[in-house]
Design a protein around this nucleic acid. Structure first.
Lengths: 353, 353
DNA sequence: TTGAAAGCGCTACCAC
DNA sequence: GTGGTAGCGCTTTCAA
């Protein structure tokens, strides 16, 4: 959009100018500074003046300009933070968003939410937009392969907290799930129900969590003395459709798996689609990483390794506000444990014989 | 600052001051005004100066302060809008959020997302927070019973677009679904499959959409000459648990319904929970208002009247930017049609005899 | 306790 | 084409 577009803001009826501190000062017969004192709750104002100012504020419906305030303030706080997610529309991101909002609210802070869509370029753009707006801090589920570029932001006073995936090329706070352990638990669960032919299906291998979950898968196989077959590992399945086809291909192979560990939400859904389409949903075991809506209304109900997303988000935003309020300790990585929820699909035994 | 100060800062990670236009001007040997011209892409700058300025900007990693800029600008645009939702974590809101983000991005505008939780008080607080931040506009799924208070905001140049529910006590733009028609279609669908005992289950009756959907329900009954029984209408079911109990109560009554029209997402889910718990999910027909994830993986697959949420969100944000860029026409109400998606649960016939 | 003046970072206006 | 000056709405410093 060009400049003239915005300049032509037309006006229905009389455009009403917003009241400023000067208007309030004039109406109440005090100086601007006294108005400022009242607004900011500084005690050194006599009751009489405070009353007059308060009345004028109400009468004029004065609303202080936060941007002007923070421009002048020593701390420069803008009371806004940025939350950069994979996609605001997916349940993981949306839940994270809610957790962040809840804590931000306590700090009178608004939250910019944005989607990166796993695109590094988008991450750079949104981080830049956030700094142009001088946000007080950034929470990010990163998409970029390297975060060295953020060092400058952190040094100039914009703290950054990573969520779900650790920073690379940068020391910064991070709140992550116990991916390896969770995946390991899922696969042990399948093995303990008698499965020896277990497949791994994951989304884009560039994402750190996928690697960690694959490690957990392998560790569990090794612990149970099960061999890993290359054709039992499918990666880079970004959506349910792709995942569904990968499952179909495995089922069509000479040695189809009897159990699936689906390392992400959408992959789980794709797998279920294929199993249902083939009428195998009561025959092939499935454990998914990350819970999802309706998992307990499907037939069979879906066994998952659930992440505590609210807790992850809450820890992240709390850490961010610690930084914003001056904490300058060494960066910390926190791991939030997962929980295996056995609902049925993960307890299906392998076919007899 | 001497050299040792500098070294100490480097090691302790003390905050580095951000470069300003003045720094850029000093380094490139031009006036601040020329830097401003370069930043804003004004053409009246010689190539030579533009080059020097551009180099200085890169060298200093200068990032213009958007808040300072809009404070001074004639139009005062801050390039941020507020999106006030029922709850950022629910799928309807999350999808809306994504639609708004997509269009906002084209306008170099960030989106504040906030949750009202159906609490009028929260609405007032968040609208106030948004105006303190001087957002360029507000998109709202309202919770308050009256919106007269917004008249002032609109007059002072902050346009407001309503989504999902119309404004009350205020003339403003709105983008809504065809609730009455959609509900009517759902109930006619059930009637046309032979049902005469159809129940209505809806969430909080204070919400406008619930009333419209109930009207559609009644209209369909009337059209088919079916009587409306008071015990077949349950309202104020804010969550799946409450809805589940309401369904259970109806099933336990002397004349249980053979078909359910669930007027909202969470109500549909609660109804399915009860039907599954009683093993009746293949016997009682269900049509839900609003689609939901996994609806086509359940058994039976769930027939719904789907809203085109992306389209609703896109129309709303487009309307908002029209207002922001000067449109001062009369407020418009747009209705986005729903689509009945027959998947199975809505085509279950009533029990024979 | 109160207020005058300076200035945050930037753009508008008007000189040259 | 370029730059000086004023000022956006507010807080800070310092004097009264």
């Amino acid at each position: 959009m060009n400049q003239s577009d915005r300049d032509q803001r037309a006006t229905t009826g009389d455009p009403v100018r917003r009241a400023t501190m000067r208007d309030v000062a004039a109406l109440s017969g005090v100086s601007i500074k006294t108005v400022s004192r009242v607004i900011n709750g500084v005690s050194t104002v006599s009751d009489d003046l405070r009353d007059r100012v308060t009345r004028a504020i109400t009468q004029l419906d004065f609303q202080p300009n936060l941007a002007a305030s923070s421009l002048r303030r020593t701390d420069g706080a803008t009371r806004q933070i940025a939350l950069l997610l994979e996609d605001v529309a997916n349940p993981f991101s949306a839940t994270l968003s809610r957790a962040v909002e809840n804590v931000a609210r306590e700090h009178d802070t608004l939250v910019f939410a944005g989607s990166l869509d796993e695109e590094p370029q988008r991450e750079l753009e949104l981080v830049r937009a956030a700094t142009l707006h001088r946000v007080d801090g950034i929470i990010i589920v990163p998409a970029a392969p390297d975060h060295g570029y953020l060092h400058r932001e952190i040094r100039t006073g914009t703290p950054v907290v990573f969520v779900d995936r650790p920073p690379r090329g940068l020391a910064a706070d991070a709140v992550l799930a116990t991916n390896t352990e969770g995946a390991r638990e899922a696969v042990l669960h399948l093995a303990d129900h008698g499965h020896t032919e277990i497949a791994f299906l994951g989304d884009e291998s560039s994402i750190t969590t996928v690697g960690e979950r694959l490690t957990g898968f392998r560790r569990a196989l090794a612990e149970r003395g099960l061999p890993e077959r290359p054709d039992r590992v499918a990666l880079d399945l970004p959506d349910p459709g792709t995942a569904a086809r990968a499952v179909a291909a495995m089922l069509d192979s000479a040695h189809p798996p009897t159990a699936l560990f689906t390392a992400q939400n959408l992959v789980t859904i794709g797998a279920i689609q294929t199993l249902q389409a083939r009428g195998l949903h009561h025959d092939v075991a499935v454990v998914g990483f990350d819970d999802f809506p309706m998992a307990d209304l499907l037939a069979p109900r879906v066994t998952v390794v659930a992440q505590d997303v609210m807790r992850i988000g809450t820890l992240a935003v709390q850490r961010l506000f610690e930084r914003i309020t001056g904490d300058d300790g060494a960066p910390r990585e926190e791991r939030v444990p997962t929980t295996l929820i056995a609902r049925g699909s993960g307890e299906i035994p392998p076919p007899a014989g």
